[in-house]
Design a protein around this nucleic acid. Structure first.
Lengths: 149, 149
DNA sequence: CAGAATCCAATAGGATACTG
DNA sequence: CAGTATCCTATTGGATTCTG
């Protein structure tokens, strides 16, 4: 695919999203029932997405997930896993051994999230350098003339 | 494209993401410098994404964005816009009129986000019903036998 | 109009101790 | 091991007031 076609794709994606947004305009606009907010809130809660990423590597036990995300507390991991289970993205399977062991894995619904999530993460990795540069430039601007110097 | 090919794409996307995640394994794992966290934190902060979606409709003035998102406060809108500007996703243009007017628009970097973001939102809209159903089922399970009934 | 500043309430989230 | 319960702190975010 040439750069021309890629640019066309991007433009098409932009226009498609713009139209989708326009389509919401005449809706009642109940923030609580907005799918966008609902999903984005979940993904943005600092841990959920990380847990999903760990589970792309296959089923994990509770403690294995915790080892994979060193700075998560048990409390938050429990909550993230329960939310994901509640939403049907993750399945929880208990093995009645002693001590008990529990395994978590992505459901088909959870796996279907990986495609758009992967695209977003790819974007993040590609553009991270640009964002960092923009931040540096922004910080310079702000410190350059704080009091009309 | 047939269902077979679509399933193949999905599988490919899953495997691609899984590999990407594996690629991070040997990294120092500094949570503060993780692009994924950095981007997801931003998108998940409840307002940033909504603002971006509004700006897909073209340049907006401060108050126009606020009208488009009824339940945002000036404080939060200011912050969201400044963060977006800082990251280079949004450009801010001041017109020296009285009273002053300021226009915000997406930069090329900001527009490049629309493609993966649109994919995520499309996913959210498509699967929202399934998630709601899963939540209902989960709630039933929990209330069914809270004390071994 | 576009924001900055201040104050306050709600929530998120970490640390620790306890349980089946 | 896989959580739950409790406590406490930090951050988020709304309401209000003030300024250029």
């Amino acid at each position: 695919m040439g750069t021309r076609a890629r640019a066309g794709n991007r433009l098409a994606a932009r226009e498609a999203l713009a139209q989708r947004v326009r389509g919401w305009a005449h809706l009642p606009f109940d923030p609580a029932r907005c799918p966008v907010r609902s999903v984005l809130d979940q993904l943005g809660d600092k841990w959920t997405t990380l847990v999903v990423l760990v589970l792309t590597q296959g089923p994990h036990r509770f403690s294995a997930v915790q080892r994979a995300i060193p700075d998560i507390s048990k409390r938050m991991l429990t909550q993230a896993l329960r939310d994901l289970e509640r939403d049907g993205l993750v399945a929880r399977q208990v093995f009645p051994t002693t001590p008990p062991s529990v395994e978590y894995r992505l459901t088909p619904l959870g796996e279907s999230l990986l495609e758009p999530l992967g695209a977003l993460i790819a974007w993040a990795e590609v553009h991270m350098a640009g964002i960092v540069a923009a931040r540096a430039g922004f910080a310079r601007q702000r410190t350059a003339r704080p009091a009309g110097a």
